[in-house]
Write a protein that binds this DNA or RNA. Sequence first.
DNA 1: ATTAAAATGCCCCATATGCGTAATTGATTG
DNA 2: CAATCAATTACGCATATGGGGCATTTTAAT
Lengths: 209, 209
Amino acid sequence: MNENKINVSIVEDDSEIRQLLSLIIDGSPSFECKYNYSNCEDAVEQAPQNPPDVILMDIDLPGSSGIEGVRELKVKLPGTDFLMLTIKENDESVFESLSAGATGYLLKDTPPTELLDSIKSVVNGGSPMSPPIARKVLSSFHKTVDSPLSERETEVLKKLCDGENYKTIADALFVSGNTVRAHIKSIYKKLHVNSRAEAVRKAINQNLL
Amino acid sequence: MNENKINVSIVEDDSEIRQLLSLIIDGSPSFECKYNYSNCEDAVEQAPQNPPDVILMDIDLPGSSGIEGVRELKVKLPGTDFLMLTIKENDESVFESLSAGATGYLLKDTPPTELLDSIKSVVNGGSPMSPPIARKVLSSFHKTVDSPLSERETEVLKKLCDGENYKTIADALFVSGNTVRAHIKSIYKKLHVNSRAEAVRKAINQNLL
DNA sequence: ATTAAAATGCCCCATATGCGTAATTGATTG
DNA sequence: CAATCAATTACGCATATGGGGCATTTTAAT
């Protein structure tokens, strides 16, 4: 194991792609790519014996998916970064991969040079993403502009999320507890929920605050 | 207004930096940078008269911040993309900017070439971020690996977030309502909360599900 | 000017919730 | 083997919550 080279492993079922990637990476002077796997199970079992700096993980694998792979390997290899590789840019896959612990997400049309740059970026503290993925991720933070709630209701909802009860909300807004209850009823109606828990959930997930 | 060029406006209080950026951008054949502003108020008032494709927005501005600026301009200029520019990489600023509607976030040490590339990327559907920012953003999706909750408690918490009550949770888990209550008590204790609303909030914000 | 929300306020009532306390079993771990 | 902890069950109690209905005033919007 050359200490100066960035050690990369690949998990990819298509042997052609796997070998191609391996050649690109291993052929580059600053990288080394010795241990590759054709499925998740092998990777989960064997990668811990030869811990790489970065694992390129295909998402669509036979058996357990690359997402599952990251989830399992992340605990066994806390020092390894995971770069997802996929053909289709599926919304759910992106966010699931990220919450599983991926530090980057590339589409397979990424040209070789960029792939190598991305791997470098990962070990240097970056998080490379293909442009459409980055956009998707950032967009997930955007607020829903058209909240169905009135200003006052939004104010009440915020306090609901803080776990405040009728009385404290009422005091904070200088209105009666009954008014607060009326607002909450209205909020529930508009959000189509009938409990605080659901209201809080919707408020957070839809950025209504 | 040249239709072939990408139209850029800058909001930046430091006149030196503003002019420097303007020179870099306007000096490049594929860009045009005519209308720049030294503060948010001016930008909010005047930019709608000359809507640019991209606005480079400084965060630390005298008066209302660049974040506030994005929030206000985003509604007036729905077709414009906002690229934040800042010196310090403050966590809160990043996420606030994104939820305000920014589509990119660059640190001021970004070299001119990359800045231009980033602007191009934005209009082409990307979301450029400086490496440490990208890492921060992706990390925000990572699950808290060391959840203080037991598996059973996590299961209960999920159902709490769905707005289920003691009875339905109990039925779903094939245990008594009292058991569910005991679990919930334990959850509250571990999460340092004392209501569903707070528990749901923590669960979502800390990815405990 | 008329209508429609929004914001405010109130009552009753059944049930859900949170808190305290306590006990049993099984698994894990030192 | 002892100790700890997770999971389970249980009871009582004060209060919070959600549902229903109803009324007034202020503030948009048409």
